[in-house]
Design a protein around this nucleic acid. Structure first.
Length: 420
RNA sequence: GGUGGAGUCGCCUAGUGGCCGAGGGCGCACGCCUCGAAAGCGUGUGAUGGGGCAACCUAUCCGUGGGUUCAAAUCCCACCUCCACCGCCA
């Protein structure tokens, strides 16, 4: 949720942000007008309510005719108060709904435009050159008996899979290495719930435009998370944190569930786009003035992980129109995928500024200061999808795959050998 | 799933319709006292919206949501959470 005060004081900032996202900026005028009406309704209600309280109080002290007269007056006021309160509440709700529909104010410097208007910030590492025809990750996964999508489909349907043998070991090793890096960087490791209440899910912003992406358990009115960002953001819901403890950094390990509605026919082969995968996610709570710097740190930690698995990749700065509603800025790291001659998103880090914290009411306080909303940020450290890029980039002519050096202690193998 | 008990200001607690505009204690902050400290004494001590340059004023908040009433922490209904016991169970 955007800040109403900022909107009142600096409406131009929101107008510019809306235009950068390619969205309607007239919502600013509508919001300001609605806010005006709401405040005047509130004042009207408060005045009536104050009178009602004072008359009500005098009823108990009076007697006889005076009491009867006061009672009559009190009854009148009671009806008036109800009406005025309902009006004020109605306007407050309208304002809240409209306010909730407005995406975060874009950070200055983010590229203007849509999905294709990202800016490449850097390219890291060498793309591999093969003197044989490289196999794609599924072919390799099957040769290694690491990935079984056929039985995944048999048991659970399309876009489900089994990781088996060295495949399972590769994922466990990768995610353990991510956790270990996070712990060494001072993150608190977390294993989170993957089912969330509607309020928690809505609070983190995943029931907005993402609603059709989310699995819902009808019988229990719970949602399956698409990322541990959701439980980690809701973790301090309705809390006031000690300013001295910021930044607070959590590394969450969870399975993630996505319906992938609307992606029919896209990445149908293998495990690039699936309904269930595992992920280690970094999540930071920090002071708003430190958020840009924290965002840079998260990106560095992602690059550190990518270096450990020795993948060629590029970093892109996502354009305003392609940002999620909570994000003010977003950087993705995309690994090179040799068999498809394209880049594949492996990490994504967003600075949500105070947008998410405002909706979830997560604040911090320094001694003797008023509470302020924290900034929240998130970033990927490793996911199941990384296996795709690792297999393809480190394959050899015989179908074996060299395990990146840093990962070897975690996987327990130097080379993954095809199963005869 | 069943039965019973409980949820009040950071923590503990008082509070059975108007004297609650929520009292007391702990903690915390400041002051007095002291060479310094402890103890003691005094003062202060939440959140949110609105108004105001400000001090301050005002409304709301006693688990959540409804209801009764001129008036609700207090009465009624539903729900949530926690605790205990029973049943089932990885």
């Amino acid at each position: 949720m955007i800040d109403l005060r900022t909107l009142r004081d600096h409406p131009d900032r929101l107008r510019a942000s809306q235009r950068a996202r390619g969205e309607d900026d007239s919502v600013v005028e509508t919001l300001l007008a609605l806010d005006e009406r709401r405040r005047s309704a509130l004042t009207g209600y408060e005045t009536l309510r104050a009178e009602q309280k004072s008359v009500g109080k005098s009823v108990s002290a009076a007697s006889g005719d005076e009491r009867a007269a006061l009672l009559a007056r009190a009854k009148e006021l009671s009806a008036g108060v109800k009406g005025a309160e309902a009006e004020a509440e109605k306007l407050a709700k309208e304002l809240d709904e409209l306010l909730s529909s407005v995406p975060n104010v874009v950070e200055e410097g983010a590229p203007v435009g849509g999905e294709d208007d990202y800016v490449v910030l850097e390219e890291v590492g060498e793309k591999p050159r093969f003197d044989f025809t490289p196999r794609d990750h599924l072919e390799l996964g099957e040769m290694l008996a690491a990935i079984d999508t056929e039985r995944g489909a048999k048991v659970s349907g399309a876009r489900f899979f089994f990781l088996k043998g060295v495949g399972a070991r590769l994922q466990l090793g990768l995610l353990n290495m991510a956790m270990q890096q996070a712990i060494e960087a001072g993150f608190t490791p977390m294993i989170t719930p993957v089912l969330l209440k509607p309020e928690a899910m809505a609070g983190t912003g995943f029931l907005g435009s993402h609603a059709s992406e989310v699995y819902r358990l009808e019988a229990d009115d719970l949602y399956l998370v698409g990322t541990s960002e959701a439980p980690l953001a809701a973790y301090h819901w309705n809390e006031i944190l000690d300013g001295g403890s910021l930044p607070m950094r959590y590394a969450g390990w969870s399975s993630c569930f996505r319906r992938e509605a609307g992606s029919y026919g896209k990445d149908t082969r293998g495990i690039i786009r699936v309904h269930q995968f595992d992920k280690v996610e970094m999540f930071s709570y920090c002071r708003p003035e430190d958020a840009v710097q924290e965002h840079a740190r998260l990106l560095e930690w992602e690059k550190q992980m990518l270096a450990k698995v020795e993948l060629p990749y590029r970093v892109i700065d996502i354009a305003a129109g392609d940002l999620g509603s909570s994000a003010a800025r977003k950087f993705d790291c995309e690994a090179w995928l040799p068999t498809q001659n394209r880049y594949l998103e492996l990490t994504s880090t967003s600075n949500c500024t105070e947008f998410q914290a405002r909706r979830l009411s997560v604040r911090y306080r320094d001694t003797d200061e008023k509470p302020r909303h924290v900034a929240t940020l998130n970033g990927t450290l490793a996911t199941t999808r990384w296996i795709v890029a690792i297999l393809e980039n480190h394959q050899q002519a015989d179908g074996s795959v060299v395990v990146p050096k840093a990962l070897r202690p975690y996987v327990g193998l130097d080379v993954l050998e095809p199963v005869k």
